[in-house]
């Protein structure tokens, strides 16, 4: 069963690589922001999966909740900034 979760972890890490391509390559700034949102969604899931592997879900879920809320704050800061600044 642990092997299955490790397989899941590796698959999700490769998915992060795809979003990282979008962050680096993205033609506009907003593509990069979307890539960052995708990466943080994967990071939230990875946190819970790691908790399942270690059998300490209650601790790792707190990290995931923190990620989710920070992700929201960061996305709002970026969006506000870009709205006032315009595209570079």
């Amino acid at each position: 069963m642990i092997d299955f979760f490790l397989f899941l972890l590796i698959t999700l890490s490769f998915l992060i690589l795809v979003y990282l391509y979008r962050v680096i390559q993205g033609p506009t700034v907003f593509d990069r922001v979307l890539g960052l949102a995708g990466i943080s969604t994967k990071a939230i899931i990875l946190g819970v999966v790691m908790g399942t592997v270690y059998d300490r879900v209650e601790m790792f879920v707190d990290i995931s909740t923190g990620y989710a809320l920070l992700n929201l704050v960061g996305a709002f800061a970026i969006a506000k900034f870009l709205e006032q600044r315009g595209t570079p």
Binding site: V23, V29, R32, G35, L36, I39
Partner: peptide, 8 residues
């Protein structure tokens, strides 16, 4: 863009 990559 480097700020975003630094975040990830």
């Amino acid at each position: 863009s480097s700020v975003f990559i630094l975040g990830s």
